[in-house]
Simulated scan of single mutants.
Amino acid sequence: MAFALLVLAALAFGGWGLWRAFGPQPANARDTLRTQASRIDILEQEVATLKRSDQISRQANTDLQGTLAERDEEIASLRADIAFYERFVGSTAQRHGLSVHELKLQPQRDPQLWHFVATLTQNLNRGAVNRGRLLLMVEASNGGRMQKLGWGELRQQPNAPGIEYSFKYFQQIEGDLVLPVGVKPVRVIARLVPAAGSPMEQSFTWGDATVGAPANR
């Protein structure tokens, strides 16, 4: 009897397994799977799109901030220019004779080569044209001894003429200097030789003349 019951139980369990494997599935099961798979694809695409949109928004915001910073710098520069011009051509501007208002040097790729920009000004003789030449000299230490490098040596041309200038109120003069190997510059001397009148000299420490220059020396 027990054996017969065991056989019947085994047959019943086997039949249930066959029905689970081969029996009919719900009519919408495959459609449901396809719908869910399609939904997953759509959601993944939406996530990818949102991530990309977020990246673009972040980059656009970064670009905007950079543009705003550039505009602020440009406005500040223009205001400084206006203030500079008013000092010399404004109705209340103080009168100054011929001088080197500013001298700046920037290092170039060649470690011995420097580019200079000298700003010449005057408003003492309003409307009068000032003409002449600008020359630079450099006081430098070489092996513990001070020496003065002349314009011809700095330009690598023994009889190099000065750079001509001609202006009423101000003018920027540019050029290049070549320092000998091993020297340590200490001071720059700007010499103005006007077409009429006596020459004049102004000195600038090397540190002041190179403020803001890349520290690659």
Results as ranks from 00 to 15, higher is better:
A2Y: 07
L6S: 09
A9D: 15
A9N: 05
A10W: 05
F13Y: 11
G17R: 12
R20F: 09
F22G: 12
F22S: 03
F22P: 00
G23A: 09
R30Q: 14
T32H: 04
R34Q: 07
R34N: 14
R34V: 13
T35F: 11
Q45F: 11
S53T: 10
Q55K: 13
I56H: 08
I56E: 12
A60Q: 05
N61Q: 07
T62S: 10
E73K: 07
E74A: 13
A76Y: 12
R79K: 10
E86F: 15
E86K: 12
F88R: 11
V89M: 12
V89Y: 00
R95V: 12
V100Q: 00
L103M: 04
K104N: 06
Q108L: 14
L113A: 09
L113E: 09
H115V: 07
T119P: 02
T121S: 14
Q122H: 11
N123A: 07
G127W: 04
N130F: 02
R133K: 12
R133T: 00
L134N: 01
L134A: 00
L136Y: 02
L136Q: 00
V138L: 02
M146C: 01
M146W: 09
E153N: 07
E153G: 06
L154R: 00
R155L: 06
Q156C: 04
Q156G: 11
N159L: 13
A160C: 02
P161L: 04
G162K: 02
E164F: 05
K168T: 14
K168F: 06
I173T: 10
E174M: 14
G175P: 08
D176A: 10
V178A: 11
P180R: 01
G182F: 02
V183W: 02
V183Q: 04
K184P: 00
V186Y: 03
V188D: 04
A190Y: 01
V193P: 02
A195Q: 10
S198R: 10
P199L: 01
E201V: 10
W206L: 01
G212A: 10
G212T: 06
N216W: 11
N216T: 12
